[in-house]
Design a protein around this nucleic acid. Structure first.
Length: 414
RNA sequence: AGACAGGUGGCCGAGUGGUCGAAGGCGCACGACUGGAACUCGUGUAGGGUUAAUAGCCCUCGAGGGUUCGAAUCCCUUCCUGUCUGCCA
């Protein structure tokens, strides 16, 4: 959630910053008004409560002294009714305010380039030269078919469309990749965690998936539980409603989880192959950082993900997202796009974001800064999306006969 | 899933209707003592909102509701934890 006091005090600046993300001034105006109304309602309520408290104290005193309490009782009763009304008002004001506030995306950093969509993203650098093929490279689904690696039909039979089954060496390669990623992250100082794949609503609100993006989540029937769309949710919320000591920062975590997404709104996109599935594996990095240090941590995470791709010999490019392409919670995001010779283009394989204090405010993650409690910065990034890495290996390491080489660094895992 | 017992500050733990956001202890921080340390002594130490304020005021003793002038304390609902039984990897 964005800082309401900041919006109140620096309205024009806040409006200008959010414009980059496509939020109109009207919405922000509404937010400011509602915030003012809530404060007013609370002030009135608190005044009445203060009065009630002091009258209640008098009440006890009168009784002890044997004074007549008739008149006081009448006053107290009247005030009680008033409090109930004021409380109702304040509650209403709060509900309305939060409905709006929770749906407003994070401020982008000033350094984020202007732009509408991914067309306006800025390429920062390319790493590794794409291989030159002396034959026509195939797309991953064609290679999968040749090698018997992916059983699309049975995935659909077991579940429904956008599910699949990896078979034989593909399944082994998937597992090898997970291990390779986790080991690499661990060597960089990330603690390895194995977390629940279902989280409750409060956690999903903490990281920003709820309440606005419920339609993209799988919900467990009759339970306050959702299948996680990314390990960012459990890892970041490890410290939900906690106060960390400053020396603990940054907290670096990594974990492998499957990710579950309904992909509502992407019907017809990437239907061939396993680029876009309802369930996919991902190894995630999450950092909880001191606000002054989150930029450093961010750079480290981008470098780490890029290094993993380099170690696998996969050509990729580093792209800074423009304001319009930035996710809901992110203040800044860098995507890594891997080269897919079969598709003849770069495709997203990792997305690293600094959410500043946006998630921290929602999830109440703070640290002790001297005497005061301050919000931390939270960061997350894939290192890496496993299924898409598998695709990248298939396409980049294919031979003319359709067979696929195993990258050197993975051999000890197979 | 059933039965019973519980959920209080970073931790342990007292508190069964007002003087309690809360005794005492541990831990932690600062200070005194010391050559330095341990010990000892003193002081401080929950979160959130409002506010210029670390002043005042309000809210919070798992959560929600109720009784009452007044609830950590009484009642209801719910969630969670522990133990036993059942089931299972």
């Amino acid at each position: 959630m964005i800082d309401l006091k900041y919006v109140e005090k620096n309205f024009d600046e806040a409006a200008a910053r959010l414009k980059k993300k496509g939020v109109d001034t009207q919405t922000l105006e509404k937010l400011k008004t509602l915030f003012g109304q809530l404060k007013e309602a609370n002030a009135a309520l608190e005044a009445a409560q203060a009065e009630q408290n002091s009258m209640s104290k008098l009440f006890g005193q009168y009784k002890r002294e044997g004074k007549d309490i008739g008149e006081l009782k009448a006053k107290v009763d009247a005030n009680k009714e008033r409090i109930a009304q004021l409380q109702e008002k304040a509650r209403e004001a709060e509900a309305v305010l939060y409905e709006v506030a929770l749906a407003i995306p994070n401020f982008p950093d000033d350094s984020v380039p202007e732009g509408e969509d991914e067309e306006d993203n800025v390429e920062l650098r390319k790493v590794l030269e794409p291989r030159v093929f002396d034959f026509e490279p195939l797309e991953h689904w064609a290679l999968a078919e040749k090698n018997g690696w992916i059983d699309f039909e049975r995935g659909v039979k077991l579940a429904k469309s956008r599910f699949s089954v990896l078979r034989g060496d593909a399944a082994r390669l998937e597992r090898a990749l997970i291990n390779f990623f986790l080991d690499t992250n661990r060597e960089k100082g990330f603690e390895e965690l194995c977390v629940p794949f279902m989280n409750n609503a409060q956690m999903l609100q903490g990281t920003g998936q709820l309440p606005k993006f419920e339609e993209d989540l799988f919900k467990i029937e009759d339970e306050d539980l959702y299948l996680i769309p990314t390990a960012e949710v459990p890892l970041t919320n490890m410290y939900n409603d906690e106060i960390l000591s400053e020396e603990k920062l940054p907290v670096l975590m990594t974990g492998y989880t499957p990710c579950f997404r309904k992909e509502a709104g992407s019907a017809g996109r990437d239907t061939r192959g396993i680029i876009r599935q309802h369930q996919f594996d991902k190894v995630e990095m999450v950092a909880i950082a001191h606000p002054d240090k989150s930029d450093e941590v961010f750079e480290m995470m981008v470098q780490n993900a890029s290094d993993i791709l380099t170690a696998l010999g996969l050509p990729h490019r580093v792209v800074e997202l423009c304001g319009g392409d930035l996710g809901f919670s992110a203040a800044r995001t860098i995507d890594l796009e891997v080269w897919l010779p079969g598709q003849n283009k770069y495709r997203e394989i990792s997305s690293i974001s600094n959410t500043r204090d946006f998630q921290a405010r929602r999830a109440k993650i703070r640290f002790k800064d001297g005497k005061k409690n301050r919000l931390v910065h939270t960061l997350n990034g894939s290192a890496l999306a496993v299924g898409r890495t598998l695709i990248a290996i298939m396409e980049n390491y294919q031979n003319e006969d359709g067979s696929i080489e195993i990258p050197e660094v993975l051999k000890k895992y197979m």
